[in-house]
Design a protein around this nucleic acid. Structure first.
Lengths: 94, 94
DNA sequence: ACTTTAGGCAAGGCGCGACTTGCATGTCAA
DNA sequence: TTGACATGCAAGTCGCGCCTTGCCTAAAGT
C-alpha cells in the first residue's frame, strides 16, 4: 500500500493523472504513446507500468481487465486526505 | 525551489505541518521537542532543520528571524496547487 | 499452430534524499 | 568578554526510488 503523497511525488505520475483526467479508461500502451507524443517523455513501457502500479497501490487509479487489455481509471477519492489534513486558512499573526 | 508534492512526501515534514497548524510560530527547538515528546521521533536537530528548509523552499513554511531565534509559520497557500490540478469528480462510466 | 499484441515479473544500475557528525556563526546574559 | 544558547554549513553514509534490460504469460488474429 503506497501513500498518496508518495504517489504524487513524481511528475510522470502526475502527468498520467492529467491524461486520465482528460480521457479516462486508457490502456497502458495508450498512456505510453500519449505521454511520448504530447509531453516528450522517453520512457519504456515498463517504467510507465511501474508508475501505474504505484498509482493503483495508492488508490488513485483503479483498473479493469478485459481480455488482454487493462483499462485505467482515475479515482480522485484519496486526494481528500490531502485537502482534509490541514485547514486552509491564512497564517495567524505572530 | 522545492516542489510542493516532494515536500509533502515525508511523514516527518507532514508532522511538522501538523504541529504548526496546532501552534503557529514555533522555533526549531520547540518543534524538535514536541516531535520527540508527542510523536516518539528521535531525530537530530539538524535533521529537523533540513526538513524545515525543504518546507520553506516549497513555500509551505515562512520564517521570521528575531535575534537568535527563528520562528516558523505554516503557509497553506501552495496546497492550492494540489486541489486545483485535478477535478474532484467521480470516475466516468466506461 | 504460429505470430502478434498487451501486459507482468525480476534483477541490476544509478542517483538522490534522509540522516548523522563535526565545526562554524551569531546572539544574549552575566 | 566570556560562556551558554539558537541556528547554519558541509561532508559523508546509507537506503530507497526510478529506470532499464531480459525473459515470461496470456489473449487475439490468421
Amino acid at each position: 500500500m503506497v501513500h498518496v503523497f508518495r504517489a504524487l511525488d513524481d511528475e510522470t505520475r502526475r502527468l498520467v493523472l492529467d491524461e486520465l483526467s482528460v480521457r479516462d479508461g486508457q490502456t497502458l500502451f495508450e498512456i505510453c504513446s500519449v505521454l511520448t507524443m504530447r509531453h516528450g517523455l522517453s520512457l519504456t513501457r515498463q517504467a510507465i507500468s511501474q508508475h501505474l502500479g504505484v498509482l493503483e497501490s495508492a488508490g488513485l487509479v483503479v483498473t479493469e481487465r478485459r481480455g488482454r487489455s487493462k483499462f485505467h481509471y482515475f479515482n480522485p477519492e484519496p486526494l481528500a486526505e490531502i485537502t482534509g489534513r490541514w485547514p486552509t486558512r491564512k497564517r495567524t499573526e505572530q
